[in-house]
Design a binder for these strands. Structure first.
Length: 779
DNA sequence: CGGTCGGTCTTTTTT
DNA sequence: AGACCGACCG
């Protein structure tokens, strides 16, 4: 379509600091990018600029993000700017980049190319297994906690031996024992957990200088997003790859570091300038997202953190409305108020449901909201939460598929051995395990020779049948396409795995009677009796499970090989990650909200003990992390922001009274409009109009309204009308909206105070406006 | 071996 | 309130 952008086009429209970040050459670059400061824009333009100026070939660029979604988005935007050649760049997450390298080079570490990736649940199972074998008290040391310790240590770049050396308590030494055996079993199972993917890549580079040299040469430019969320190992990777040419650009905002509990180390970004003394630092603090009121609030809150570099976000977009605060009786009142306000925003202010998001600290809080939204007939979706790949039946089938690809995968074997039920109980599994261990053979061998292993005749027969079935399927499995050695510029894909968003899924053409991934799912589900067991159950949820099985087959069939599908399934946590179509309100945790933005945001449950979470109250470091989370939440809002807390909240069956969150007290008074204070007042101060709507749908007391006409000004009386209803608009008229700019009237309805107009704003879609309330003038 | 009952423990989770 | 685990029994 359009001609590719030249270097000058690529810096057009950028602010001065943005431009400098794009044009910087020679040496390390730290881009301190505040929320909403256009960092993705800078990153994508920088990549395109490197290519357009000829300073780098596309395949010499490695761009790292944290989520697949972010990687897809970046890939898309870079392709727009730099053309298809940009597909030769690696734009991926740390984990997928490491997988790609390890698939090609893992044999140097003793892994085979088909190694399995264990997610947290798989890893936890193995820890549990090992703990029990070692007689660890799994009550006092839960597998979850032990794995957490191991994971944290791995994130710091430690191994079992280092950990043992550091061990201060008997517990730590036990953890080291478990870790030792866990790691042995992982190698035996030809499996890696998420932390291993990173750690093994580092090990590969450290132990094989020739490999490192290859990749250093290959990736002459390294860019890393969300640097504040990197852990020590990821930092090592960055340093290893960029340590020689030093063309490393990192982007991040220490105020948005909220994954400490996952091993993220904020000092990586804080100390970047020390690690790279010749680094250039560019700060982006102009915000292009929010009103100044919202930014002032966020600035004020985050200023209470001691361990940070001062930074003030600013905007030229104007003051905007005050932040609405609602003090609810309980979580139901809170939810009902939110539901009512959302209706107001849609009816009176002209927002679409998709423009609105509600954030909460913990997933459990979504329930009351969902109930209220259903009652108020507000369409919504819950983002995150239960993921497709976490469902039991999906995990079961994936375990079958993994065993097909990797017969040494013990955890998956154990999972499927008695699913569906074939009379193989705990004792049989124990016999299989000890026989395998004694003979030094994989668990799968014991399954095939169960009778020899001492398993009872009936169970042994079932197991032999299972092994034979899997052998048969394995023989008919379509081979994985050759993926090269990971070093060629153009191997694999230009645009991520097939089936990934942004690429066209290709129905795998399977030659002869070879089985592709989709067919394998079907075969496994049918021939193991998995599907019939579900159907026999007959319950509603069993039927849902059957649907999930079919869906899994559908997803799988978009991949070229089973191995490829399994890799994607392990690395892409959420299949229903799809961006909403704009027709639904989004509900999500504050963590998930990071990186997103919405015209209207509600943050609920702002109570000490909820947010900040109870477990953070006594710990200053944790508390600062919670405050960063608050900062993240506040800065997601573009124009409308409401914060709520409930005096009473029922949690886990009992009701407790909570104080308002300390973060609420950190919001400057003049930025906040307290809605509960108008309780029983005649109203009029807060934008008025349609109070009936809020009242009836909220099922609460009328008069508690909030978001009004969008008129700024602290404490000033809001006008009852913008007068736009008397403009006499007809379809085709050009108008200017205070927020959305110029648009065209598409349709008008009603008259007087009830007059409404549908107005199309270029690039923003058509908005329904209540003219009495809308800041509208003739163009 | 497999179903049922009661006791316990509840954050956040890009990969 | 709900999920998950372990003990108990047919």
């Amino acid at each position: 379509m359009t001609a590719l952008a030249g270097p000058d086009d690529l810096v057009a429209g950028l602010t001065d600091p943005q431009r400098r970040a794009v044009e910087h050459r020679g040496g390390p670059l730290l881009i301190v990018a505040g929320a909403g400061s256009g960092k993705t824009r800078v990153l994508t333009r920088r990549i395109a600029h490197l290519v357009a100026t000829g300073d780098a070939a596309p395949w010499q660029i490695l761009a790292i993000t944290f989520t697949n979604k972010a990687a897809d988005e970046m890939r898309r935007r870079v392709a727009e700017l730099a053309g298809p050649a940009a597909g030769r760049s690696w734009v991926s997450t740390f984990h997928s980049a490491c997988v790609r390298i390890l698939r090609a080079q893992g044999d140097r570490l003793g892994y085979r190319g088909s190694f399995t990736i264990y997610d947290d649940a798989d890893a936890r199972r193995l820890v549990e297994m090992v703990s029990k074998e070692l007689d660890v008290d799994t009550k006092r040391m839960t597998p979850r906690a032990v794995l957490g310790q191991i994971s944290q240590a791995k994130s710091r770049g430690l191994g079992p031996r280092d950990y043992r050396d550091e061990a201060a308590t008997i517990f730590d030494r036990r953890i080291a024992d478990v870790w030792d055996e866990y790691q042995r079993r992982m190698v035996a199972a030809n499996a890696m957990d998420f932390d291993d993917l990173l750690a093994n890549a580092v090990r590969l580079f450290e132990e094989h200088p020739d490999v490192l040299a290859h990749y250093r040469e290959r990736f002459a430019h390294v860019l890393i997003d969300e640097y504040q969320d990197t852990n020590a190992v990821q930092n090592s990777l960055a340093v290893l790859l960029a340590g020689e040419h030093r063309n490393i650009a990192v982007v991040g905002d220490s105020d948005q570091s909220v994954y400490r509990f996952r091993g993220a180390d904020i000092t990586n970004i804080l100390d970047f300038e020390e690690a790279f003394p010749d680094a250039t630092t560019i700060t982006l603090d102009q915000n292009f997202r929010s009103t100044q009121t919202i930014l002032d609030a966020a600035n004020a809150v985050i200023a209470n953190n001691l361990s940070r570099k001062p930074k003030q976000l600013w905007t030229d977009r104007g003051t905007g409305e005050r932040i609405v605060r609602y003090r609810a009786e309980d979580e139901d009142d809170e939810a009902a108020w939110v539901a009512g306000e959302i209706r107001r925003l849609v009816r009176d202010v002209g927002l679409a449901h998709g423009d609105v998001a509600v954030f909460y600290r913990t997933n459990a809080q979504s329930r009351a909201l969902e109930e209220a939204l259903v009652r108020a007939e507000v369409p919504y979706r819950v983002v995150g939460g239960t993921k497709f790949y976490d469902r039991r039946e999906v995990r079961d089938l994936l375990a079958y598929l993994r065993v097909l690809v990797n017969p040494d995968d013990e955890v998956s074997w154990r999972r499927i051995v008695n699913v569906p039920k074939r009379g193989v109980g705990e004792t049989s599994v124990a016999r299989l395990a000890s026989w395998a261990a004694a003979g030094g053979v994989p668990f799968g061998t014991a399954v095939a020779r169960a009778a020899e292993a001492g398993v009872g005749a009936k169970a042994a027969g079932a197991l032999a049948e299972l092994a034979a079935l899997l052998d048969d399927l394995r023989a008919r499995m379509a081979p994985a396409p050759d993926e090269g050695d990971g070093l060629e510029p153009d191997l694999l894909d230009a645009a991520g795995p097939p089936g990934a968003p942004g690429t066209t899924p290709v129905e795998a053409a399977t030659p002869g009677d070879l089985l592709g991934p989709g067919a394998l799912v079907v075969e496994v589900a049918d021939r193991t009796g998995f599907r019939s067991a579900l159907l026999a159950d007959g319950s509603i949820e069993a039927l849902g499970r059957v649907e999930n099985v079919d869906e899994l087959a559908g997803v799988a069939s978009a991949y070229r090989s089973l191995a490829e599908f399994l890799e994607a399934a392990s690395l892409v946590a959420d299949a229903d990650d799809l961006d909403g179509d704009g027709s639904k309100v989004s509900l999500m945790t504050l963590h998930i909200a990071k990186g997103l933005e919405f015209p209207a945001v509600f943050i609920v449950g702002m109570e000490d003990g909820i947010f900040p979470h109870a477990r953070a109250l006594g710990d200053p470091v944790e508390l600062e992390e919670e405050r960063r989370l608050c900062y993240v939440g506040l800065t997601r809002a573009e124009r409308h922001l409401a914060v709520t807390h409930a005096w009473n909240r029922t949690l886990w069956g009992s009701t407790t009274a909570n104080m308002a969150s300390r973060f609420l007290a950190e919001l400057p008074d003049e930025l906040v409009q307290d809605v509960s204070s108008v309780w029983g007042s005649t109203g009029g101060r807060f934008g008025g109009g349609r109070r009936d709507l809020a009242g009836t749908s909220a099922g609460g007391t009328p008069g508690r309204s909030s978001f009004g006409t969008g008129n700024p000004g602290a404490g000033r009386r809001e006008p009852r009308s913008t007068g736009a209803q008397s403009l006499g608009l007809v379809a085709g008229d050009r108008v200017v909206h205070g927020t959305w700019g110029e648009g065209t009237v598409v349709e008008t309805r009603g008259d007087g105070d009830d007059a409404e107009a549908a107005v199309a704003f270029p690039g923003l879609g058509t908005k329904q406006l209540l003219l009495r309330m809308a800041p509208l003038k003739r163009a």
